[in-house]
Design a protein around this nucleic acid. Structure first.
Length: 481
RNA sequence: GGCGCCAUCGUCUAGUGGCCUAGGACGCAGGAUUCUCAUUCCUGUAACACGGGUUCGACUCCCGUUGGCGCUACCA
């Protein structure tokens, strides 16, 4: 093998891009980019029942959105493609044939029912369920009989009892005893490979130097090493990343948590920057306590030595915090661009110039882009609210009425609608009428926004402009009559 | 059941035998600012799963227990 770093992410398109897949994708990608290696996307679609083209699209779209690009993948077959396992079936069959010829594998005619029964018996006897190997030495007559019955065979790999040891990049030294395994299936009766087999072959043919994947594959590793030895493959480095868990500490699942990068995060207003940062600090941490990371900085700082061994519970609150943080850091222009699809959906896409100033007032309270329409709708529509909201607590209807009328009068005569001069003006109004600042500003703000919580009165006045502001204040005065 | 992995505040984590009275971040609570909310700042809250060793000394090393997760499929 050459010493170029080549890593891959190998999702099966039986579902959308999952946050766990994105997690291993990110760590692989970071490693490749840091080492000037290659990052490969391979689609493992040998489960024809459940694989769907739309999921392939979802996966590639999601990765691209996150900023994770790949050097080799399904859209181009060079140099070691195809990169879709369904296009590589002949390859797997040839390798299976080779194993068969070398007596390292055999046809197994056992039916599913027989196997289940066998397993049940073993379980009753408290034995480790493992295949008996009874088809290993079938006579020609037995084979003929099975074929006559129309049985379609699987191909099983002969497991030699031995110890398999390897050093995992994150877990350290690991050893398995293969005598506990039993001969396992490598080709299904429909002629398709099992993922274990296809994966081992593809990793070899695609010259994968480091197999970095979820910890759920750790127990599969010795089987793949066995396969590699039988086929004379070089052994790649292995690294198994800790899993992401639901709050109840079970393996992360969509039933208990949002998991779809596109549907649950992208489409509900999370930023790719926040997702990347969040995913990166689950299972990995820098020695200097830094928690805010851009993709670019991660490339330099990421290290397998600093990857933790224990699983991490998905924490939506931290994600929200990070998302808010990155939203606050955007320029208004960037924010408006990012918010566009959400505004369109809410029918607030007109009035571009007003939009920018409105967004800048609201930016610091946005947690998700999908919050934006509700936060800025009062800039576009007349607010609706009940009279009670106008009356600040600990004040009276009479006072509020005076406050609004006096404010109206002075605002009507004011030509400078900048926030600073407005502040001077309105504080003076309050003082002159023996009102607390709040007794003037609260009803004003409600009159303009119709909301209990909103940006400050001065900013809203400035943003709305004189004409619109006066119109709304007048309406509130009428409400109090 | 067998095999494997894992075990520090509620959560993400720092910690590689004395720097630990265990640090940071999110969350939560309180405070400052304030017309509300948010932002920002300050303060506080809260953990080494348990039991044995090893050692002058264990969060750190070893063993066991418990617990969690994964694999044990013609799913990946």
């Amino acid at each position: 093998m050459n010493d170029e770093i080549r890593v891959r992410i190998a999702p099966s398109p039986t579902g959308y891009l999952h946050i766990g897949t994105a997690h291993t994708a990110l760590f692989n990608w970071l490693f490749a980019r840091q080492k000037n290696g290659k990052f490969i996307l391979r689609i493992e679609d040998t489960d024809t029942e459940r694989s769907k083209e739309e999921f392939v699209t979802d996966i590639t779209d999601g990765l691209s959105w996150l900023g994770i690009d790949w050097d080799e993948g399904p859209e181009r077959n060079e140099p070691f493609g195809p990169y879709k396992q369904s296009d590589r079936l002949q390859i797997y069959q040839d390798y299976a044939e080779k194993l068969l010829k070398e007596n390292k594998a055999y046809y197994c005619y056992c039916t599913a029912e027989e196997l289940i029964k066998e397993r049940e018996v073993q379980e009753q006897k408290k034995l480790a369920p493992k295949y008996s190997g009874k088809c290993r030495n079938l006579t020609n007559e037995q084979v003929k009989k099975c074929q006559a019955e129309g049985r379609k065979p699987t191909i099983r790999f002969i497991v030699e009892p031995k110890k398999i040891a390897f050093t995992d990049l994150v877990k350290g030294d690991i050893e398995f005893d293969t005598s506990l395994f039993g001969d396992f299936v490598i080709m299904k009766s429909d002629g398709r490979p099992v993922f274990l087999f296809a994966g081992a072959i593809d990793d070899f043919m695609m010259k994968i130097s480091h197999v970095i994947r979820g910890e759920d594959h750790l127990s599969n590793t010795p089987r793949q090493i066995l396969l590699g030895e039988a086929l004379n493959f070089f052994v790649p480095e292995y690294g198994h990343l800790p899993l992401i868990l639901n709050p109840d500490r079970t393996k992360l699942s969509k039933r208990k948590n949002p998991t779809s990068i596109n549907k649950d995060f992208r489409n509900t207003g999370y930023l790719p920057e926040a997702m990347i940062n969040f995913i990166a600090i689950m299972g990995w941490s820098a020695k200097n306590d830094q928690e805010l990371w851009t993709l670019k900085d991660l490339i330099n700082e990421f290290n397998f030595r600093d990857v933790g061994k224990s699983p991490a519970v998905f924490d939506g609150q931290k994600l929200n915090y990070l998302n808010g943080y990155y939203i606050r850091k955007m320029s208004v222009g960037e924010l408006s661009k990012a918010a566009e699809p959400f505004l369109q959906k809410a029918g607030l896409s007109d009035g571009k110039d007003k939009l920018l100033s409105a967004l800048s007032l609201v930016q610091e309270r946005v947690k998700k882009l999908s919050d934006i329409p509700e936060l800025i709708e009062f800039f576009f529509k007349n607010p609706e609210f009940s009279q009670d909201l106008l009356i600040m607590k600990n004040s009276t209807k009479e006072k509020i009425k005076i406050a609004l009328e006096e404010s109206y009068k002075h605002l009507f005569e004011e030509s400078d609608f900048g926030r600073d001069s407005l502040e001077q003006l309105l504080r003076a109004v309050a003082a002159k009428n023996n009102l607390k600042a709040g007794e003037v500003l609260w009803p004003l703000r409600v009159a303009l926004t119709g909301k209990e919580a909103s940006p400050g009165a001065f900013e809203v006045l400035e943003c709305l402009g004189k004409e619109e502001s006066l119109k709304r204040i007048k309406k509130s005065i009428d409400m109090l009559k």
